[in-house]
Design a protein around this nucleic acid. Structure first.
Lengths: 145, 145
DNA sequence: CTGCTAATTGAAAAACTTTTTCAATAAGGA
DNA sequence: TCCTTATTGAAAAAGTTTTTCAATTAGCAG
């Protein structure tokens, strides 16, 4: 089910602002801040109040159509999400953000921490940071010169 | 080496605001926001400008004496840190935050994601959320009645 | 112990971000 | 095509963080 169907099914309208923002997020490889979204739409000659950007992102996040991704300085941004539960790996240079699957992999960690701390774990926040293939190459070029 | 020695050694002064904030953080079991720190010091009859709270937290964070911990709503707060690299598990009810060791445990995950995505992983953001022992008990009491 | 100097703080303002409010607009069913 | 109500726009409020610069103070020198 695509996002338009999800919105409709839940009784939300397919308004122009929502279409524009989803369209933008679908093309973006990096997480975008509300301001960036506002500006990029402006550049495409679509004037949308910043307030509406906030409201729309809030809705899309609640519907889990987009997810919050932190940049290397830990500023939050918004990225289209495909799967339900997901984590991201973010490039420290170009901020490109990719989803990766597998919360399975931290099960072992979760169990150890539960045993150690007596906490009952119910959720987690996980992001990886590093260099994307393109930026690894850029860095090597610099060194060779 | 304790925090006073670290500050001195790096040429920073042991000012009253720094002492007060560290003292507060040393007693706190939850991560505190700048506003909370400001208010709690006020209640102890120590008037400290909010600006100074920000500045001090910034310094302490750079020195890795405190670390940023997100509450369940992902609002950032500050918590005293003991080890160098560390993660936290946070109670979704009372916000109690505990450090846990072991970035080793995500090595396997990191390697898999590196293989999958061709990113080179250099850092990560990891927090667990759940219920602390006390709040687990509180919840059970509720159910029994 | 006293004075000096640079680091640090305070206060005000600026810059930014996010939320609230309410009237105007527009999506989508009748 | 009309109506109803969700949605948006605009302004303002609320809240957070940063900047600036003069006043203060920690810690060293004497």
């Amino acid at each position: 089910m695509d996002w338009k169907a999800i919105l409709s099914q839940k009784g939300y309208r397919l308004s122009e602002p929502r279409k524009r923002i989803m369209e933008l997020l679908e093309k973006a490889e990096v997480a975008l801040s509300p301001q960036q979204i506002h500006q990029e739409l402006q550049q495409k000659a679509y004037e949308l109040g910043l307030v509406s950007v906030y409201r729309t992102l809030d809705l899309l996040t609640r519907l889990e159509l987009v997810s919050v991704v932190y940049d290397p300085q830990l500023n939050p941004g918004y990225r289209l999400s495909t799967t339900g539960h997901h984590h991201h790996i973010v490039c420290q240079e170009c901020h490109k953000a990719l989803e990766f699957s597998g919360s399975d992999d931290i099960n072992e960690l979760v169990q150890r921490v539960e045993a150690e701390t007596s906490f009952q774990v119910r959720d987690h926040l996980l992001q990886l940071f590093g260099l994307c293939p393109d930026c690894q190459q850029q860095n090597n070029k610099g060194k060779e010169i």
